[in-house]
């Protein structure tokens, strides 16, 4: 096992190389998944708001409907 870790005396170089590769690949994956989740959440919010809008705001008085201004 210690032979394996020692990498023929080149341990620092070999293990650093594998470590930096792992770091970059994991960080890229994490950032990608994070961005996707955030945008899915934002989109859900926006689409829910878009659904809600045409029905107008709940008001106390029975006023005339607000004219559609979307699009």
């Amino acid at each position: 096992m210690s032979d394996f870790l020692a990498m023929g005396g080149y341990a620092v170089y070999v293990w650093s190389a594998y470590a930096i590769a792992a770091l970059v690949l994991v960080v890229l994956l994490a950032m990608s998944l994070g961005a996707l989740k955030r945008r899915e959440a934002a989109l859900r919010l926006l689409e829910a708001a878009r659904e809600a809008r045409p029905r107008g705001e709940p008001t106390g008085s029975g006023s005339a409907p607000v004219p559609e201004s979307s699009r």
Binding site: L36, R39, L43, E47, A49
Partner: peptide, 30 residues
């Protein structure tokens, strides 16, 4: 294989982002 996975995830995110931008602009214009 890793690249294919990330390319799909990230392109999907870009598409969502574009839709978000469109919806935000629609809200802004209304």
């Amino acid at each position: 294989a890793y690249f294919v996975t990330l390319a799909l995830l990230r392109t999907r995110a870009e598409l969502l982002n574009r839709r978000i931008q469109v919806l935000q602009m629609a809200r802004g214009a209304s």
